[in-house]
Amino acid sequence: MNSNSVLKKKICLIGSYGVGKTSLIKRYVYDQFDDKYLSTIGVKVTKKILPPIESNQKKLIQLELLIWDIEGYEKNIPVIEEYYMGSTGAFAVADISRTETIDHLADIVKGYLKVVPDSKIVLVGNKIDLKSDKSGLKEKFVQFANQLNLKSFFTSAKTGENVESVFTYLGEIIIKSI
C-alpha cells in the first residue's frame, strides 16, 4: 500500500426492516441512486469519502466507503450472502423503539460473520429521537452489544445525532486493522 493512498472499502448496512438504515445513509451521504433499486434487487449502493485517517504506520489514508444498504432481514433476500461478500465492515442497525429488531440482530450478525468472519461490525441503535423508551430497550441493546463484545452507538437519522460519528468510527477501526 502506498503512503497517503486512497483505499476503497465495501461496507454493509444490515438490520431488520424499518430500522432506518436508508435514512442513516440519506443523512450521511448525498450521492445516491434512486430508492427503487432497493426494492428491486434488495440493495442500494452509495458512496462516502471520509476525511484522511492516520494508520498505525503513521500514514494518512483517504477512505472511500462503498456502502451497500441491504434490505430488511425479514425480506429474506436469497442473494444476501453474495451482497455481504468482500465487505470490510458493517453497521448492524436496530430500532431501539422496537424490541424485535434487537432480537433479530443476533441472527443477522451471525449470518453476516459466517460470510465475512474478519469484518468489523458496529452496532447502531437508531431512532434515539423517539422519546418513549418503553421497556428499557436501550439497556437491552447495550447488554446485547456487550455480549458480542462490539462497540455500540445510539443515533438519530432524523436529527443527525451521532450519525457522522458511527461512520468515522468504523472508518478508523478499518484503517487501524490494516
Binding site: 476503497k8 465495501k10 450521492d31 445516491q32 441512486f33 433499486y37 434487487i41 434488495g42 440493495v43 442500494k44 449502493v45 452509495t46 458512496k47 472511500e64 462503498l66 451497500w68 436469497p78 442473494v79 453474495e82 451482497y83
Partner: peptide, 21 residues
C-alpha cells in the same frame, strides 16, 4: 455521468442478484 464507483457497485449487485435468481 453518475459516480462510476456507484455504477460499479450497482452493476455488481445486479450481477449477484441475477446470477443467484
Amino acid at each position: 455521468t453518475v459516480d462510476q464507483d456507484l455504477i460499479s457497485g450497482m452493476l455488481t449487485a445486479i450481477h449477484n442478484f441475477a446470477g443467484k435468481i
